[in-house]
């Protein structure tokens, strides 16, 4: 196993909840993330999936230091960095970088691409004025663009090319951890594949740990070695991508997998997808017990056991590599082999 590059322990993030409060009352808060623990090794891609409001983006931002954590610890290369301290923040920016979803708003429209890409070198003082251009050119080539592109502005590029530029900026100083937040969601299918292949190459060449946040299960399944499934701010299942997709150990994972619209495989009848009832509950009213029990098909099938309503299931080992937060994880049938 490679060296652990990112380690998150018991991380919680709280946000002030919107809504009225008295002038002298402390603001009420809600938990966007509760008790998240995970680790990613160098050269590994961990996929983070979940629906909107599941906290996947918040977790990404917490790791990059863009949101304040309220509990727990984040270690990069074995050291915990405190974003309140200027020096630590500077160090964090070198070791942890992020690629955002929308390449149309994440690049400065009035700076040339060359200027944007030279910025990480200037800030981290990793290149002198003279070799900046060489480094920028090398960077452009590494992401499949050409050095002549350096003089142009973001508006001259297509969505896929812009995302390449954003990736180039992120890997400029060889970070240990790259957080990619829905990097291909804004792109057309034919262009998506180009970026996915690029990320795939980079992960092995650059030897960095990658956290890949996405709502697209097939993309995550393709790119990642391990997957963590989030629901209402918690990890409900985590494990190797292949097994998790083929043989889910949490009813929510099973429902997600079966809800992916697939191109029918030849001569293969598919079982009916599990359609969950209702919407994801709001953070202000997280259900008691297992947060998923209000939409859980297994809960209904088992005749609504009281335990699911009263006890919060912890993330327990299913086998050596996999953990699931469900009391009945052994009874989850995979969507395809299921009845």
């Amino acid at each position: 196993m490679n060296r652990v590059a990112l380690e998150v322990e018991n991380l919680s993030v709280e946000f002030p909840s919107p809504g009225a409060r008295g002038l002298f009352q402390p603001p009420a808060t809600f938990r966007a993330l509760s008790d998240i623990s995970l680790s990613v090794a160098t050269g590994e891609v961990l996929g983070l999936i979940g629906e909107s409001g599941s906290g996947k983006t918040t977790l990404g931002k917490a790791i990059v230091g863009l949101v304040q954590t309220s509990q727990g610890q984040i270690q990069v290369d074995g050291t915990a960095l405190d974003i309140q301290k200027d020096r630590d923040r500077h160090e964090l920016a070198r070791r942890v970088q992020m690629v955002f979803q929308d390449p149309f708003s994440s690049l400065h429209p009035r700076k040339t691409v060359g200027h944007t890409l030279a910025e990480p070198f200037r800030i981290q003082k990793t290149a002198g004025r003279n070799d900046q251009t060489t480094k920028v050119n090398a960077l452009l080539e590494r992401v499949g663009l050409s050095p002549t592109h350096a003089a142009r502005y973001p508006q001259h590029f297509s969505g896929g090319q812009r995302q390449r530029i954003a990736i180039a900026r992120a890997i400029a100083n060889q970070p240990s951890v790259l957080v990619a937040d829905e990097p291909v969601s804004a792109l057309d299918v034919s262009v998506q594949a180009q970026i996915l292949n690029l990320l795939d190459d980079l992960k092995s060449q650059e030897n960095m740990a990658m956290l890949f946040i996405s709502h697209d299960l097939s993309v995550v399944r393709h790119l990642c070695q391990r997957i963590a499934v989030m629901y209402l701010g918690r990890i409900v299942e985590i494990g190797p991508a292949k097994e998790l997709a083929a043989n889910p150990a949490h009813p929510y994972t099973a429902a997600l997998m079966s809800a992916v619209p697939r191109v029918k495989a030849r001569n293969k009848a598919r079982s009916k997808p599990i359609v969950l009832q209702g919407d994801v509950p709001s953070h202000a009213a997280i259900p008691s017990g297992c947060p998923f029990h209000t939409r859980c098909w297994l809960y209904e099938k088992k005749g609504c056991p009281a335990r699911c309503r009263t006890e919060v299931p912890s993330l327990d080992k299913v086998d050596s590599a996999r953990q699931s937060a469900c009391f009945y994880s052994t009874e989850v049938e995979s969507p395809d082999n299921g009845a």
Partner: peptide
């Protein structure tokens, strides 16, 4: 160009 959920890790 689109990865499939069932297929193995072939390159796109």
């Amino acid at each position: 160009a689109h990865p499939s959920l069932d297929a193995d890790d072939s390159r796109l």
